[in-house]
Simulated scan of single mutants.
Amino acid sequence: MTGTRPRTAVITLAAGRHEHLLLQQDGLAASPAGPDHYVVVSMADPAIAALTAGRKPAADVIGVPRQDGRLPLAAARNAGAARALSFGADLLVFLDVDCVPGPELLNGYARAARDGALLCGTVAYLPPAPAGGYRLDSLHGMARPHPARPVPEDGQVVRGGDPRLFWSLSFALTAPTWDRIGGFCEDYAGYGGEDTDFAATAAERGADLWWVGGAPAYHQYHPTQHPPVQHVDDILRNGAIYRERWGTWPMEGWLREFASRGMAAYEPATDTWRRK
């Protein structure tokens, strides 16, 4: 954005991962240009408010309930954006709770921001934390970039990105661009699909995906399963919603892996994936 620095809100969602959230808060506090507003959306985690209280930047904690026992990721992001916009945010920066911002993340996003652009900064992955935990000044040297995502140099912006590569770990957009896209579809609940839908909606409504160098985030380690078998029911449910809205199935790599493990099956006659 040109001219004066935009009023910037950072929005994160949390349910557990308390140590990760606190390190993110520390990273924001250490940034040369901190956020004007830090919105933490607690997804049915009553400990979040006390956990973040009295620390910098001050956390504006709001809560959303679970949806039929599922984490309401889409609804929580919409609630966080609504809160930030009600306080006059010009630029919305969404960070996954596992992501620690690099010192220049906010400035990098502010420099690149334009109406009509959906911005994705680089995210590099950290190994397990050493004894005593991560140190902010050592994250850059420890982290490794994702092999399937662009990694622009500092100050470089790669326009015309593939919406299918959009990720919600770290992204930003101006308030008018958020309004143009219309937020996340709240039909989705639980793990998977809502961010792919958001990127498809953004593309349909003329928002271009830009990969932004110089807006780094570092993803804190946590154990994962590949494929995410613990989320198979959510992925099948949300995949079906996406299929109904867009005519194709998302997350097909995972679906095929579920099938290879006897957990799901594809029915070509109806273009349907079902649980086995």
Rank of each mutant, 00 (worst) to 15 (best):
D187N: 08
R70P: 01
L236M: 07
S31V: 03
P72M: 01
T201C: 08
F94R: 05
D45P: 11
T122R: 15
W167K: 10
A131T: 08
A49W: 00
P6C: 11
I62V: 15
A30W: 02
D90N: 09
A215D: 06
R261W: 06
I62Q: 01
E204S: 12
L21H: 07
P101S: 09
L139V: 11
D195V: 09
E257A: 09
P130F: 07
T122E: 14
N107K: 02
A50I: 00
E252L: 14
A89C: 11
A84M: 03
V100P: 05
V232N: 05
F94L: 09
H146D: 15
G141E: 13
E252H: 00
Y109C: 05
G63A: 15
D115H: 13
W246A: 06
D96Y: 03
A89D: 04
W167E: 14
G16I: 07
H219N: 15
R243W: 01
T52F: 00
P150D: 11
A264T: 04
A15N: 13
D68V: 00
A81C: 15
G133P: 04
P127F: 08
T248W: 04
T272N: 01
A259S: 12
G183T: 07
L13D: 05
A264M: 04
G161R: 11
M142T: 03
P150M: 11
A110V: 06
Y266A: 06
F198Q: 04
M251K: 09
N107V: 02
T177M: 09
T224N: 10
Q25G: 12
G190M: 11
F198H: 12
S170W: 03
D208M: 10
L118I: 06
N107S: 14
D187W: 12
G213Q: 08
